[in-house]
């Protein structure tokens, strides 16, 4: 089963990379952008076949390694 995770910076954490991307987009003519926030995307292929169990395991992975909860939020995307 494949489970996806999206990690984003929390709202009040400065994202200098997002800011530079925003500025560049602005310079390219995409002038209606309000803000850009950069994040990370993971695809985890697990042997677990039970949907809930797999999600619980991935949640544990997020808390222990994939995200740093001081600055980041994680979102697990339901496997299809």
């Amino acid at each position: 089963m494949k489970i996806s995770v999206i990690i984003t910076l929390k709202k009040d954490v400065l994202d200098p990379q997002g800011k530079v991307i925003h500025q560049t987009l602005d310079g390219m003519g995409f002038e209606d952008v309000n803000e850009v926030r950069q994040g990370k995307y993971f695809e985890i292929d697990t042997k677990e076949t039970d949907n809930d169990k797999a999600k619980a395991k991935v949640e544990e992975m997020c808390k222990k390694l994939l995200a740093n909860l001081v600055i980041e939020n994680y979102k697990i995307i339901d496997p299809k």
Partner: peptide
Amino acid sequence: VETGLVPGVLLRNKYL
């Protein structure tokens, strides 16, 4: 900081 022995995190430098 990643072990949690000291609080906080170290982000990318402000001016990249």
